[in-house]
Amino acid sequence: MVERDNSGLTELRRGVLVLAVLSRLQVPQYGYSLKQALAEGGMPVEEGTLYPLLRRLESQGLLASEWDTTSAPPRRYYRLNAEGERVFALLGEAWRDQVRVMNDFLDEEPADERG
Results as ranks from 00 to 15, higher is better:
Glu85Thr: 06
Ala37His: 01
Ala82His: 08
Val2Thr: 11
Val99Gly: 07
Arg75Phe: 02
Gly8Lys: 02
Asn103His: 13
Asp5Leu: 11
Lys35Met: 07
Glu113Arg: 13
Pro74Ala: 15
Leu80His: 03
Gly42Ser: 06
Arg114Cys: 03
Arg24Pro: 01
Phe88Pro: 01
Trp67Val: 15
Leu17Gly: 00
Trp67Pro: 10
Val2Trp: 05
Leu106Glu: 10
Glu66Pro: 00
Val27Arg: 12
Arg86His: 09
Pro52Thr: 08
Arg14Pro: 01
Gly8Leu: 12
Arg79Lys: 11
Glu11Val: 10
Ala94Cys: 04
Val87Pro: 01
Leu34Met: 04
Glu47Ser: 10
Val27Gln: 12
Glu47Gly: 08
Ala37Asn: 06
Arg4Met: 09
Ser23Cys: 06
Lys35Gln: 15
Glu11Ile: 09
Leu106Lys: 03
Asn6Pro: 00
Ala37Phe: 00
Leu9Gly: 00
Leu57Cys: 05
Met1Thr: 13
Glu93Phe: 07
Leu63Glu: 05
Glu66Leu: 08
Arg79Thr: 11
Leu12Pro: 00
Arg75Gln: 15
Gln60Tyr: 14
Val87His: 02
Leu106Ser: 09
Leu12His: 02
Leu90Val: 04
Arg79Gln: 13
Glu46Ser: 09
Glu108Ile: 03
Gly31Trp: 01
Arg13Gly: 00
Leu57Tyr: 02
Ala72Glu: 11
Pro110Gln: 09
Leu80Ser: 04
Leu62Tyr: 15
Gly42Cys: 05
Glu109Arg: 14
Gln98Arg: 15
Val101Gly: 04
Val87Cys: 01
Leu9Cys: 01
Gln60Arg: 14
Met43Gly: 01
Gln98Cys: 08
Arg13Tyr: 08
Arg79Asp: 01
Gln36Gly: 00
Leu19Asn: 04
